[in-house]
Every structure is written in structure tokens, then in C-alpha cells.
Amino acid sequence: MRTAVIGYSGAGKSTLAKRLGERYSCPVLHFDRIGWTEGWVQRDKEEGKALTARFLDENDAWILERLP
């Protein structure tokens, strides 16, 4: 399973992605965790790309959650 949950802030996409991940035993990648570090400091874009690439390389099935 490869699923992207896309929506605006407050739409419930994080909750939906989490529940889908639990139901189908798939890892979930929340792009807020890729784009921001602790304290909501924006992460370097190249570092974010590397983290995303690693997640995709390590998982055949996944759920992504992001803003449009």
C-alpha cells in the first residue's frame, strides 16, 4: 500500500494517516516532521529531502501526510 493523505491544516489528515497506518500496519511519514525540527525551526531542504528519500527506500508500503 502506498497512500498520500493531502489536505489543509486542521482537516484531520494526521489523524486519518495515523489510523490508516495502524489498520494496515504501514509506517506513516508526516511532512511536518520532515520540514521542521524541534521548536518549529525550519529544517534545511536538502536534509529534508534526504530524510524523505531514506524513508521511501526503507519502506515498500507507506502512508504520507502533507499539505497540498
Rank of each mutant, 00 (worst) to 15 (best):
M1Y: 11
R2G: 01
T3F: 12
A4Y: 14
A4D: 14
V5Y: 05
V5H: 10
G7L: 11
Y8S: 05
S9F: 14
S9D: 12
A11H: 11
A11F: 14
G12M: 07
G12T: 08
K13F: 06
K13P: 00
S14M: 10
K18W: 12
K18S: 03
K18V: 05
K18I: 03
R19Q: 10
R19D: 08
L20R: 05
L20W: 09
G21N: 09
C26S: 04
C26V: 01
L29I: 08
L29T: 04
H30N: 01
R33M: 04
R33A: 04
G35F: 08
W36R: 08
E38V: 08
G39Y: 14
W40N: 12
W40G: 06
V41Q: 14
D44M: 15
D44H: 15
D44G: 13
D44C: 13
E46V: 14
A50T: 13
A50G: 08
L51N: 10
A53C: 10
F55A: 02
F55G: 01
F55R: 04
D57E: 13
E58N: 02
E58R: 01
D60Y: 00
D60V: 00
A61H: 03
A61L: 00
A61E: 05
W62P: 01
E65F: 05
E65D: 10
R66H: 03
R66P: 00
L67N: 05
P68Q: 08
